[in-house]
Design a protein around this nucleic acid. Structure first.
Lengths: 348, 348
DNA sequence: GCCTGTCGTGGAAGCGCTCCCACATTTTCG
DNA sequence: CGAAAATGTGGGAGCGCTTCCACGACAGGC
């Protein structure tokens, strides 16, 4: 019953123009409009100009649902924060990564979906979500050793890049900072200051960043011919409160410590407070080096000497790597480790 | 050329099952499967069971692109952080809101898209994105007075809820904390402690939360029969560094102050540092009250008396209100203001 | 016992887009 | 100068889904 001629009114649908309407206005076929929109070279200049004018006039924007239905792409990637502790959400490092990825994507036509998984049930929900093809790829961050997502996603052949080296050394693309090298340099700096009892306030040991930064401290001591003293090690959880508590333990275990390498800036801020509470001066009595070069490192008292990660570069690499994998251009499991850099301030 | 019989292989498409395959397996038509999936009541129990079994067996999940193409819904909402200063991204308040909204949505079938707009260009890009129908609705947060998005989005009839009262009192749905009331109570608390010179360290005055919290301070003074002294006011930007600088100014302008109401906890932490640097004891010399009840309020020294916002409730309301608007059930511009609560700790 | 009304169901028409294919030109080269 | 290749274009199929419509089966009312 419907007329065969193109029906542009479609009842009372509001303003949103379609490809057809652009085609009619430009005096070409739908296919040609599509080619212009998708920047195909096989379009004559005249047609291109006409179509662009029509697009402009109609304020046409392609319907993404229709497009992904046929292209099987969504132009969306998920950033999964797999972290039971919701407080970590405000960790400056994660905030920076989220912000950086978002910024890197703003340049492209990709959209960022932020997902959080607090437990195994939510991890499964996210895997399912990804398997449906709702996203073209996934960036996984804040990985703990027991996380299910790397397995579930790679099994489902979802393009995947980890932010942080995988805990178990599996074959998967990742971007990481040179945590070990950074920690080594930080510790060497403390040793170079003439400190004799350099403690380590580590991150959680079920996270690779925690493990690697600890390993860097161990290595620096070894290189200097020292044996790591267990009394000089305390484990934190990357939070300020955790750092404060761990520092208090450290002072208890090794009252004679004269320097401490702290595996994250928020923890270092907590450590500074514990040191002050214990009456130690920083850096005179105890030199402190943090990790991350978070904003707080410049504002705390004293300002923190810390290890900076190249966040911009890391987020760019993250996005590049994922895009390559989505486009199928990826090498097997290409990965990048970005150099870190010591930033000297007053605390050491 | 293609056979009329249902072609289930479709070339070499990998595992993802479609409605058709479920229908064939269950021995019903596509329409019936669709009804089961969408929980239509018009399905016989037998058919329903058969379809559910088939769905289970095939691990079928509906293709969202296909669905939204016809339903014109995406089951996605955007959380837009419209903030030029990327550092604010790690503000504990925003982190909490993002996390809370994400959690509230986890219960539903909606997905959260996080978008950031650093400047007018990005605001336009986001408006365009929303106009295309890529999201069903938008939550706007961190609004400054000159933000273009409320206008652009409401003009485009995109369902919209603001997190925070609109600056200009326009007609738009919003959820906000009772900032003014909280500030008033905080200030009254300081006055009730017998403090005579109660200063205000405000947030940015182009944000409504900054304005309202300042107004609460003014009101409490007025209620107590005092005139607000301009020397007792300094403006911050909700950051720790800004709070520290503003506190220093305040001490300069009014060395005799004996209490200060600070419009956010991060600023209060900065203020504590400035006070310590100036040799003032907290709370003996200067009592301090913050705002937000951020995690840092419990860990700083001394722990902060502060005004807590009901974050869980606010995020739930935010999502409820937006859903109602998306479903077209919304009253004109229903809004909610959530009560705040004073949390007493050592700083006042 | 026939006429309605309800109910469950399947057929089929699209949603807006991409892309394969065929066709009509035009260009290039043996 | 004719055949082959290149080029721009439009027709049309179909992505996976929802939903309108029609149809048969059965129930109840007179």
């Amino acid at each position: 019953m419907a007329p065969v001629t193109t029906d542009l009114t479609h009842g009372a649908r509001p303003g949103v123009p379609t490809l057809d309407e652009v085609a009619v206005l430009a005096g070409v076929s739908r296919a040609t409009v599509s080619r212009v929109v998708n920047e195909s070279p096989r379009v004559s200049p005249e047609a291109r100009v006409a179509v662009q004018a029509a697009i402009e006039q109609l304020r046409y924007v392609p319907n993404r649902a229709a497009r992904s239905l046929v292209t099987r792409r969504t132009d969306t990637i998920a950033l999964v924060l797999s972290e039971p502790n919701s407080q970590v959400f405000s960790d400056p490092f994660f905030a920076s990564i989220v912000h950086g990825v978002s910024a890197a994507l703003a340049e492209t036509d990709l959209t960022l979906v932020l997902l959080t998984a607090r437990d195994a049930r939510e991890q499964r929900k996210i895997a399912r979500y990804a398997r449906q093809g709702h996203v073209d790829g996934v960036v996984l961050m804040s990985l703990h050793s027991e996380d299910l997502l790397p397995d579930m996603l790679s099994e489902a052949a979802v393009p995947l890049v980890l932010c942080g080296r995988p805990y178990d050394g599996r074959e998967v693309a990742y971007v990481d900072a040179d945590n070990r090298g950074g920690a080594r340099v930080a510790t060497e700096h403390l040793l170079g200051l003439g400190r004799r009892r350099v403690a380590a306030l580590t991150g959680p040991m079920d996270m690779i960043a925690g493990v690697d930064r600890y390993a860097g401290w161990v290595q620096a001591l070894a290189d200097a011919g020292r044996e790591p003293d267990p009394a000089l090690v305390a484990h934190g959880d990357f939070t300020e409160a955790g750092g404060e508590a761990a520092m208090a333990r450290l002072l208890d275990q090794a009252p004679d410590l004269d320097a401490v390498f702290v595996a994250s800036d928020p923890m270092a801020v907590g450590a500074l407070r514990a040191l002050r509470a214990a009456g130690r001066r920083v850096p005179e009595d105890v030199a402190v080096v943090g990790f991350d070069d978070a904003a707080v490192a410049t504002t705390c008292d004293p300002p923190l000497t810390t290890v900076a990660q190249p966040l911009d570069r890391m987020t760019t690499e993250l996005v590049d790597l994922l895009r390559a994998r989505i486009d199928g251009e990826a090498g097997p499991t290409e990965s990048r480790t970005c150099p870190t850099r010591l930033v000297r301030r007053a605390s050491a």
